[in-house]
Design a protein around this nucleic acid. Structure first.
Lengths: 219, 219
DNA sequence: GCAGTTTTTTGATGCCCATCAATACCCTGC
DNA sequence: GCAGGGTATTGATGGGCATCAAAAAACTGC
């Protein structure tokens, strides 16, 4: 997932670095014409769509290193919303310039395509999660996914703070917020996690993996 | 969605045109290294993943004009399976050559990125469907989606044959096959559709749109 | 620290849809 | 035409989770 230094230098010249955002600020809204895509440097961004009836469906919680706005390239107009869930630092990448660069930077071009391919793959996994798994399994998989992503960033993968509410977790996973709350309590009672408010300690990874339907390596 | 003639000519030179496939033939399987992506010329392809427990989750039914295999670019290995549901004609597009071409063909490059962006968007819509809609709404949306896609290919959008079984529809929509069957019957009784086996006539588009949660234009 | 708001927890109830079961239908090959 | 397997329909039952409800806890700004 690395680019040659020279290519990074090029890229650095076009990104509008250091756009600080407060909690609640919008990166973009559905319907806006797409000027840039955005790379998250710090913080957390949620993306969501709004159904015809007006209720929101969260499509992702995005952590540093991830890119949002890729769904807008097709129509050149954003189909979704992106909102900062915490204070965040965002790199704005003008799409026109990025596209020009991909012509002369094969590494960047392949990287772009890979990132999009990965996003397609991730969404397929989410599809499987939502279609075939019950509430337990969904929440377990969700916690493990967060854990792994925090870990990849050098943070603790066993202890972290949820940036999202129970309601937002439920919305994302297709569960009622009460169900999420109940399951958190249950996982706590069962010794799988320690949860106090938004603070999560994962105590038994193996059991969680088991629950999530990813049999742990040792069995 | 069109390319300049010159670019099409280039593309034509690399595609392995006219690969006929019988019902049940595999285009690729999960785990295989990704050599090519595939454009569907005629027929119907289903893509699916297999969960750790071994049951399949259908991720899409693909009609002519669509491209499958894009989820493999990231890891250069297919994460999913693709199987012909009917006799089909498939264009095999060697990915290495395609990538080379995108360097010198800006139109092709943008087209590729657009196609991937669209796929991301489509999967987000599916996410919304599965998370927020009940069985009625899912099936209505499914039928309308098929209808629109057939229509776009010049076939009738109000009368078509399902290439997939009730079981496959249910698998895709996260419903039991019995639920799909019951709802088909219900829609029939209610005069929304006429269904005889795999043959579908859509009688009342407005009502279906209403059900699917897409308010029809006239209200 | 306190009032007001948002978020979370926990309980009670009920409905949607999965599951089980049995029959009917369709299709293919001989 | 008939046998056999796959597919579809329809009914009965139950469970998982949504929904409603209310209270507790946490956070906010002043």
């Amino acid at each position: 997932m690395m680019l040659p230094d020279a290519e990074i230098q090029h890229l650095d010249n076009i990104v509008n670095r250091g756009k600080p955002m407060d909690k609640g600020d919008m990166l973009f809204s559905a319907g806006q014409s797409m000027i840039s895509i955005f790379a998250i440097r710090t913080g957390c961004i949620k993306t969501y769509t709004v159904s015809p009836e007006g209720d929101e469906q969260i499509t992702g919680f995005h952590l540093p290193g991830e890119i949002v706005g890729l769904d807008a390239i097709n129509s050149e107009r954003h189909p979704s919303f992106a909102k900062a869930m915490t204070t965040s630092m965002i790199c704005e990448i003008p799409y026109q310039k990025l596209d020009d660069l991909t012509a002369v930077m094969p590494g960047l071009r392949r990287q772009m395509v890979k990132i999009m391919s990965q996003e397609i793959m991730e969404e397929q996994k989410l599809l499987l999660l939502l279609n075939r798994k019950n509430a337990n399994e969904r929440l377990a998989a969700f916690l493990l996914n967060l854990s792994a992503r925090y870990g990849k960033q050098g943070f603790s993968s066993s202890r972290f703070n949820l940036v999202m509410t129970r309601n937002e977790i439920g919305n994302y996973l297709g569960l009622a917020l009460e169900t999420v709350s109940r399951l958190m309590s249950r996982f706590h009672e069962d010794g799988l996690i320690r949860v106090q408010n938004r603070e999560i300690d994962i105590l038994d990874f193996d059991a969680l993996y088991e629950l999530a339907g990813i049999p742990c390596h040792k069995d």
